[in-house]
Amino acid sequence: MAYSDKVIDHYKNPRNAGSFSKEEENVGTGVVGAPECGDVMKLQIKVENERIVDARFKTFGCGSAIASSSLATEWVKGKTLDEAMTIQNTEIVKELSLPPVKIHCSVLAEDAIKTAIADYRKKQDGSSGGE
């Protein structure tokens, strides 16, 4: 299987690794897991005017999961929440040439984006911050 340099780069030098404080008003946090292998992924977005201005991730899992979440944080940055909601795991698979055994890693990344956005919206709509 041929991998683009970009992919290996994502895996070896992940972008946007780290955390925001999840208490912050304009931060949405998504924590998801893959029971296939026990991987855990946290993806956070910082939102201004319905637009994602920054993102962070922390992934405890295999290289594919790390690359998938790293790519996801790059992709959501600059997108509106609605645009970010349309990101599909298949696009991640394609971009990273993920082998079938690792497709669940891309599903994880897609879920993480959606969960983070939902968390942010809940904060905005609702009573107060929290999960």
Binding site: V31, G33, V40, F60, E131
Partner: peptide, 18 residues
Amino acid sequence: DTRALPEGFLMEMLELQE
């Protein structure tokens, strides 16, 4: 539901890993 987990379990796992 192959992803079913108890409430708060994932967060706990994440915190332990951190």
